[in-house]
Amino acid sequence: MTTYQIISATGLKQLQQQAEVQIVDIRDPASFEKGHIPGAVQLGNHNLTTFIAQADMDKPLVVVCYHGISSQSAAEYLHQQGFDEVYSLDGGFAAWPWYD
């Protein structure tokens, strides 16, 4: 059973208009620095425990990777950690049309 949802880039923009959304980007730090969705936090093994301890489990959480594959397993994991509403960005950062 899937415990997260797939969301399109347009769907994410719409969700951001309706609610305060937490966005985590699981790409490597260098890729994150080159460009990321505004408001996103780079999430990796170095800050995962701290992020989970400090995050609001009730706010929607969107996981972003390169192309939308790795984010699915990360979304599943984060849901298991207690996040209620978790999404994986379909197509990943490559599908985000609003980057510079």
Rank of each mutant, 00 (worst) to 15 (best):
residue 42 Q to R: 14
residue 25 D to N: 12
residue 98 W to H: 12
residue 41 V to T: 15
residue 62 V to Q: 05
residue 47 N to H: 06
residue 46 H to I: 03
residue 18 Q to F: 07
residue 44 G to R: 11
residue 96 W to V: 00
residue 33 E to M: 11
residue 28 D to N: 15
residue 77 Y to C: 01
residue 58 D to W: 02
residue 92 G to P: 09
residue 84 D to T: 04
residue 1 M to Q: 11
residue 42 Q to E: 13
residue 11 G to L: 14
residue 18 Q to D: 00
residue 91 G to S: 03
residue 16 Q to C: 05
residue 87 Y to R: 03
residue 66 Y to T: 05
residue 83 F to Q: 01
residue 75 A to N: 03
residue 22 Q to F: 04
residue 32 F to H: 07
residue 35 G to Y: 12
residue 70 S to N: 04
residue 88 S to D: 15
residue 62 V to E: 08
residue 67 H to S: 15
residue 37 I to Y: 08
residue 20 E to T: 10
residue 92 G to N: 05
residue 98 W to R: 10
residue 97 P to N: 00
residue 76 E to V: 02
residue 72 Q to T: 03
residue 78 L to D: 07
residue 89 L to D: 01
residue 7 I to G: 07
residue 12 L to W: 01
residue 48 L to S: 01
residue 69 I to W: 08
residue 99 Y to I: 12
residue 29 P to E: 10
residue 11 G to M: 14
residue 36 H to Q: 14
residue 60 P to C: 02
residue 31 S to F: 10
residue 14 Q to G: 09
residue 96 W to H: 07
residue 44 G to N: 15
residue 35 G to S: 15
residue 53 A to C: 00
residue 28 D to M: 13
residue 66 Y to G: 12
residue 20 E to G: 02
residue 15 L to I: 01
residue 100 D to V: 08
residue 58 D to P: 00
residue 37 I to N: 07
residue 57 M to N: 08
residue 63 V to L: 07
residue 68 G to H: 03
residue 75 A to F: 01
residue 83 F to I: 06
residue 27 R to W: 11
residue 41 V to G: 00
residue 35 G to W: 13
residue 76 E to M: 01
residue 28 D to V: 12
residue 80 Q to I: 08
residue 56 D to R: 10
residue 71 S to R: 01
residue 71 S to P: 03
residue 1 M to S: 11
residue 21 V to M: 13
residue 67 H to T: 03
residue 89 L to T: 09
residue 25 D to R: 10
residue 8 S to A: 02
residue 42 Q to A: 11
residue 18 Q to G: 09
residue 88 S to I: 00
residue 4 Y to M: 09
residue 61 L to N: 02
residue 6 I to W: 07
residue 34 K to H: 12
residue 57 M to F: 08
residue 16 Q to N: 05
residue 33 E to H: 10
residue 65 C to V: 04
residue 79 H to R: 01
residue 43 L to A: 15
residue 94 A to S: 10
residue 40 A to T: 04
residue 85 E to D: 10
residue 98 W to P: 02
residue 36 H to G: 08
residue 3 T to F: 05
residue 17 Q to R: 15
residue 79 H to N: 14
residue 47 N to E: 07
residue 56 D to T: 02
residue 15 L to E: 05
residue 80 Q to D: 00
residue 70 S to E: 03
residue 47 N to S: 00
residue 65 C to N: 11
residue 69 I to D: 06
residue 52 I to S: 05
residue 81 Q to R: 13
residue 45 N to F: 14
residue 89 L to F: 07
residue 82 G to Q: 05
residue 85 E to L: 04
residue 91 G to K: 09
residue 56 D to E: 14
residue 27 R to V: 08
residue 69 I to Q: 04
residue 34 K to F: 12
residue 64 V to I: 10
residue 47 N to Q: 06
residue 62 V to R: 06
residue 43 L to C: 11
residue 32 F to C: 09
residue 33 E to N: 12
residue 30 A to G: 07
residue 77 Y to G: 02
residue 32 F to K: 06
residue 70 S to G: 05
residue 93 F to R: 04
residue 41 V to W: 08
residue 87 Y to T: 05
residue 96 W to I: 01
residue 49 T to I: 07
residue 30 A to S: 14
residue 48 L to R: 04
residue 25 D to K: 13
residue 86 V to N: 00
residue 67 H to F: 05
residue 15 L to N: 03
residue 13 K to Q: 15
residue 31 S to W: 07
residue 99 Y to R: 14
residue 28 D to P: 08
residue 52 I to F: 01
residue 63 V to N: 03
residue 46 H to G: 04
residue 2 T to C: 06
residue 66 Y to D: 08
residue 94 A to K: 09
residue 85 E to R: 14
